[in-house]
Structures are given as structure tokens and as C-alpha cells.
């Protein structure tokens, strides 16, 4: 009886593991394969598209880096990501603090207005935004793109930061104010350090978002020296139809994904939590 049951359990366990293992392969194999492909020559990609490379050579990376201006677009993406992430924080922290901690009329309404920004299809706004940026001389400009990115992540950032600031005990701010600290210093010296965990989560999420973003960059950037990585890859991909430079394409995909993998390896739990919380807003 005992033996029979455990055999049944083992079979059940294996049965349930099968779909899990299959999905793991479905997720990991294309990613591994992209890495493998980046080390293969074009001839080998045709001969042996899905197997292990015969020899690992870095020619594709050199090619992408030097002949396809990936170096410039990596630099552009880094600038846009960094400026966008900092700007989001500068705008979101004071607003999140004021909404959460200061009593004023309309605070609920303001919060609702910001948060509903997460549900509105921004694609309608992109047409006027295009002309607005043109008038401000910020079209085809990575700083203009960074501003647009920062504002686009305001709803998410304010939403997560308010819920984070609400967990900080009020007594600390109150006693600091008793000691004569100005509200500006309370915000900067007390609230900001205490919400550091929330700030880090929001910043990682925003940075990944900006690093990956494609469509706004497609609309708001035009000349190739301003391309972000996503646009450069898209360009290499459409070129590869004619040049068959698949190896170079894979190398540029790898360059784009490695920073994300590193961030995920370090901050896996934070990222997962940040994203689920961002989605559970009802």
C-alpha cells in the first residue's frame, strides 16, 4: 500500500513537472540560442542555425560595434536611461510625499488623475507630442526623449512611491519638524533616505523600461546618430534582410539584453514585486 502510493506520487510529480520543464526550455532555449548565434559566422548560421557553434569568435561584436554604430546607440541609450530615471524621481518623490502626507483639498483627485494615466492609451497623444517637441526644438533629440520617458513613467512611479511612503512612521517627520527642520529638509533628509527601498525599486523598473523602449524612440528620433539601442537593432534587423548579417544582429541583441539580465540577477525579487504591485492597481 505504502509503496504503491509513493510510486503514484512520483508519477504524478513527474507528470506535473513535464509542462514546467517544457516551458523552461521554451523560455531559455531562444535566449541561449541568441547568445550562441552571436558567436557564429553567417555561413555557420545557415549551415547549423540551432546548434552549438563550432568555434567562438567575437567578430560579430566587433562588426556591430564598429560598422553599425552600436557604440553610439549604447551611449545614447545609457544617457536617455540615466537622465530619464533621475528626472522621474525628481518629479515623482515630492508629489508622492505631498499626496500621501500633506492634507490639502483635491489630493485624492490629483492622485486619481496621475494613476489613471496608467490606463490611457498614450498613442493618441504621440501625434501632438511630436509637434510639441518640434516647437521646443526637442525632436530628434535624446534629451527630449528622456523628458518624454520620465513623464510617461510618472503615474507608475507616483503610485508605487505613495504606497511606500505611507509605510514610513509619521513620528520621525513630526519630531524633526519639532526640532525646527524645514519641510524641505524633512523631505530631503528624512523621507527620501527612509523610502530608499521604494526609490530603488521604482528606479530599476523605470531604467529597464527606458532601456527597452522602442516605439516612442521610433517616432521622436530620426537621425541615426541619435538612435537608441532599440532603434539601432531594428535598423540592423531590417538591413539583415538584404545583407544577411544575422551574426551581427544577434551580437547587437546580446548587447541589448545583457544589462537587463545583470539587473535581473541582482534585483530579481524587487523587479518581480515592483511589477506585480504596479499591475495591481485595480
Amino acid at each position: 500500500m505504502f509503496v504503491k502510493r509513493s510510486i503514484g506520487q512520483i508519477l504524478g510529480r513527474t507528470g506535473i513537472r513535464l509542462p514546467l520543464v517544457l516551458w523552461t526550455i521554451a523560455v531559455l532555449y531562444p535566449i541561449f540560442w541568441m547568445f550562441l548565434g552571436s558567436f557564429k559566422s553567417n555561413a555557420e548560421i545557415y549551415r547549423n542555425p540551432w546548434g552549438i557553434p563550432e568555434s567562438f569568435h567575437l567578430q560579430n561584436f566587433v562588426e556591430a560595434w564598429t560598422n553599425y554604430n552600436i557604440d553610439i546607440s549604447v551611449f545614447n541609450s545609457l544617457i536617455v536611461t540615466a537622465i530619464g530615471a533621475v528626472l522621474t524621481l525628481v518629479m515623482a518623490i515630492p508629489t508622492a510625499y505631498a499626496i500621501e502626507r500633506i492634507n490639502f483639498r483635491g489630493s485624492k483627485l490629483l492622485f486619481t488623475l496621475y494613476v489613471s494615466g496608467m490606463m490611457i492609451p498614450m498613442v493618441l497623444g504621440w501625434i501632438p507630442l511630436f509637434f510639441l517637441l518640434m516647437q521646443l526644438n526637442l525632436l530628434d533629440n535624446i534629451f527630449g526623449l528622456a523628458i518624454v520617458y520620465a513623464v510617461s513613467q510618472l503615474p507608475f512611479s507616483i503610485f508605487v512611491l505613495t504606497s511606500f511612503i505611507s509605510t514610513i512612521p509619521k513620528s520621525l517627520e513630526e519630531s524633526a519638524a519639532m526640532d525646527g527642520m524645514s519641510p524641505y529638509r524633512v523631505l530631503w533628509k528624512i523621507v527620501t533616505p527612509l523610502s530608499m527601498s521604494g526609490i530603488i525599486t521604482v528606479t530599476i523598473m523605470n531604467a529597464i523600461q527606458f532601456w527597452n523602449e522602442y516605439f516612442m524612440a521610433l517616432i521622436f528620433l530620426q537621425s541615426s546618430e541619435n538612435y537608441t539601442l532599440a532603434l539601432a537593432i531594428d535598423y540592423i534587423s531590417s538591413e539583415a534582410q538584404y545583407t544577411n548579417a544575422w551574426g551581427t544582429l544577434f551580437a547587437s541583441l546580446v548587447i541589448a539584453i545583457v544589462p537587463v539580465i545583470i539587473l535581473y540577477a541582482i534585483f530579481q525579487q524587487r523587479i518581480a514585486k515592483g511589477m506585480t504591485e504596479g499591475a495591481i492597481k485595480g
Partner: peptide
């Protein structure tokens, strides 16, 4: 593993 594609770029 299952969560990772959620943070990959749509381009990739």
C-alpha cells in the same frame, strides 16, 4: 525563469 521574458525589450 518564467518571469524573465516580462522584462525583455519588445524589439528583442
Amino acid at each position: 525563469v518564467f518571469f524573465f521574458p516580462n522584462i525583455m525589450s519588445v524589439v528583442v
